[in-house]
Amino acid sequence: MANPLSADALVSALRAEGVTVVEHEGWRTHNRNSKGAWGPVNGVVIHHTVTTGTDASVALCYDGRSDLPGPLCHGVIAKDGSVHLVGNGRANHAGAGDPDVLAAVVAERSPLPPPRQRTADGNTRFYGFECVNMGDGRDPWPAAQLDAMVRVSAAICRAHGWHAPSVIGHKEWTSAKIDPVGFTMDSLRAKIAVRLRQSPSNPASGPSASAPSAPNPPAHPVHQPFPGAAWFHARPHSPVVTAMGRRLVAEGCSAYRQGPGPQWTEADRESYARWQRKLGYTGADADGWPGAASWAALNVPYTG
């Protein structure tokens, strides 16, 4: 357990981790503290917004809805990797969840138990970050956005002395939710763990941004761009196929008896079909031939 970070401490932690911070006007005093406790805090919950567009998503998360007042999170992570702070204090984001899950998060114990009860107040215990995505398994997760999710989570964990198991998905907190969709929380936690083993890098300089600003692009992409559907139908022999296969194995979608290797085979196609089904595709959309959205969600490392 820990006392929540002050607004200044949160901004400092995020910027030290290299996060591009955008402070929404009024966020420092925007909260639901009058409705319940804020803290002690135990972890971070990751959500998807089921919206498109940065401005509209930020406005919704700041203002809330007619049935659920804002703030709906503490920060909104845009597709360009910028992080828009919209609340400081109790926010309407996690809702009621499983006390056994909370106990596991407090103990940083893995794996998490399945969420069955809805009796613990997550709005008291968790920071919440909404990530702009439709949550349909087709809307891609850009590398900059995923990187920002890792950095935000690592920044808060580092500030409190927590580790990667302190970061959970909304669907891991309550069976009433499915977010986030399009990547696994285990894969995100693995990236957070790697980052926490390193010193903070690429700190932002100067005051927090007043408008969205994307970080400088790397010399080459972090993830392999989609080669196109025709490329796969030509049954290529390429290190890209090997890298894809290794990601499919890591996601628990392997149909390989040997490999994976550089030559595209039916084992690659069956493995990819399992990945498509894991994302929620059915029928012809889960035929094993990669498409742009499912490829983006797989996060195949760049191989040149």
Score class of each variant (00 low, 15 high):
R274Y: 01
Y256E: 04
H237I: 13
T242E: 03
Y272V: 12
A255P: 03
A234T: 06
R277K: 08
W275C: 04
R277G: 02
S271R: 11
P260F: 14
T282D: 00
R269P: 05
R235N: 11
A267L: 04
T242Q: 07
A267D: 07
D285G: 12
V249Y: 01
A234R: 09
Y281N: 07
D285H: 08
D268A: 14
A286R: 00
Q276N: 05
E251C: 14
V249T: 09
D285R: 05
T282P: 02
P260N: 11
P262E: 03
A273I: 08
L248R: 10
Y281P: 01
S254E: 06
W264V: 10
G261H: 10
G280Y: 00
C253H: 08
G280H: 03
E270M: 13
P239K: 09
Q276T: 06
P262M: 06
R269V: 10
A255C: 14
Q263R: 15
A250F: 11
G261A: 14
V249L: 08
R277F: 00
K278E: 00
K278C: 01
Q276V: 11
T242I: 05
L248Q: 06
R257C: 03
P262C: 08
G245H: 13
Y272H: 07
R246H: 12
Y256N: 09
D285V: 02
A267R: 12
Y272N: 04
L248C: 11
K278T: 09
G245V: 15
G259C: 15
C253A: 12
E251P: 10
C253T: 06
H237C: 12
C253W: 07
T282I: 00
D268V: 13
A255R: 15
G252D: 02
R247E: 05
S271K: 10
P236N: 07
D268Q: 13
Q276S: 01
T282L: 02
P239Y: 06
A234I: 04
T242H: 06
C253M: 06
Q258F: 15
A255Q: 12
Q258M: 13
Y281S: 11
P236D: 03
R277A: 01
G252T: 05
R257P: 00
D285W: 06
A234G: 05
G252I: 03
S271L: 10
M244W: 08
V241C: 09
H237Y: 09
